[in-house]
Amino acid sequence: MSTRIDDRFAALKAEGRAALVTFVMAGDPDPETSLAIVTALPGAGADVIELGMPFTDPMADGPAIQAAGLRALKAGMTLKKTLKLVTDFRVQDDKTPIVLMGYYNPIYVYGVDKFLAGAKAAGVDGLIVVDLPPEEDLELCIPARDAGLNFIRLATPTTDDRRLPKVLENTSGFVYYVSLTGITGAALADYAGVSAAVKRIKGHTGLPIAVGFGVKNAQNAAEIAVNADGVVVGSALVDALKTSLGPDNKAGEGSVEAVTSLVASLAAGVRGARPQAGPAKNGGAFSWLTRLWA
């Protein structure tokens, strides 16, 4: 049975273009504004939404996303409220795929079975849990698959051809290629290297390949969208929101537009990357994550 993620990537492949995958932190800067932002993302051009699950110790994230998570927690965001945000989003949008991204600790504390049941009921389509390597698939990956959720794996520049089959073994939805070494928000990756990596990974799987980390603007997005099946943007959107906030990190009148205007620009870049219509022809890899997955 296909998921919204499967259906969205299949539809975009038929259109001959890549997906724009947007990351925002659930509850940043407050639950109400966060819901308004997430609800506005599809209309601005987002094809898939990654929703960060706030956590007190996000060791893989750069300063921007760390700060976003802390703002959300300070505003009272919890994992239960994150699921409620998805439920509220689904009242207005039953088509756009939602992926929850974060760390295993909050899920473990919440209870795996309870979390998966709640995520499925809310309308979540997939999970990215960056600190669970393939060797721990029985913890969450397999139960998530059995619950009807995609479990999306990360591949890094150091994931070689010997390691890649293990990484891909229970992956579904799409493969998230972390295009550089470092933390989220780091410098842009080398385009030629990214293109070669996408081609290499495609030799091992028929899943779509989405590339993230280092994408700041429409030009960056267009460069990656030429060869990848998806372009993931996170820190740039979090930064755009941060610049709109007032004293004490309170949302301003332009906070939603600060995010959606950048998404619209990125979407234009992605959509213009392959001028010919028809079927497609074609973060940071954190040091500790590289050791887990590579």
Rank of each mutant, 00 (worst) to 15 (best):
G52W: 04
L180T: 07
G27L: 03
G230L: 07
L20M: 07
A36N: 04
N249A: 11
I152Q: 05
P275V: 14
K114D: 15
V263S: 03
G45C: 10
T78R: 12
N105Y: 02
A64Q: 07
A192I: 03
K242A: 15
G16P: 03
L188H: 15
L292W: 00
N220I: 10
D7P: 00
F9V: 10
L241F: 07
G118Q: 10
G102N: 01
A44I: 12
A197K: 15
F174H: 09
E169Q: 15
A236E: 14
A264F: 00
R291E: 09
L149V: 10
L154N: 09
R90A: 02
F286N: 11
A267T: 11
D30I: 01
E50C: 06
D47T: 09
G252E: 03
L70P: 00
R274N: 13
V259D: 08
G283R: 00
Q92R: 14
L79E: 01
E257A: 15
K250V: 14
D61S: 11
S287L: 14
Q276F: 04
L289G: 05
L127M: 09
A264N: 00
V86Q: 01
L132S: 03
T3E: 14
T96N: 14
D190F: 08
A40Q: 01
D113K: 15
D146I: 05
A192T: 12
G123S: 03
V109R: 15
L100T: 02
T96R: 07
D57Q: 05
V226E: 09
L85T: 14
E50K: 06
Q219E: 15
M53P: 02
D161A: 14
V194W: 10
S2Q: 12
E257K: 13
K84M: 12
K250T: 13
A117C: 05
G206P: 01
A144D: 07
G284N: 04
A68P: 07
P63R: 07
L292H: 00
G76T: 12
C141R: 10
P165V: 04
I49S: 14
A225V: 05
R145V: 12
P106V: 09
L138G: 00
E139S: 11
A14N: 10
I128A: 03
L292Y: 01
A192K: 12
A144F: 10
R200E: 10
V91W: 01
R274I: 11
S255P: 04
A277H: 06
A64V: 10
G206A: 14
A236I: 13
K114Y: 08
S261E: 08
A14H: 09
I152T: 02
M59G: 14
F174C: 09
A285K: 04
A60P: 00
G206F: 08
L292I: 00
G43H: 12
L83V: 13
K202L: 04
F151I: 06
E223S: 06
N217A: 03
A67S: 08
W293Q: 03
P29Q: 02
A187R: 15
D93I: 04
A67V: 01
A147L: 04
K202M: 07
Y191S: 08
P165R: 03
P279G: 03
P42R: 03
I183M: 13
A280S: 14
G212H: 05
A196R: 13
E253F: 00
T156H: 10
A273Q: 12
K114W: 09
F9G: 09
R4D: 08
D161G: 02
M77H: 10
A294W: 00
A228K: 12
K199C: 01
D113A: 08
P143E: 05
T159S: 09
A236Q: 10
V48G: 10
A221Q: 02
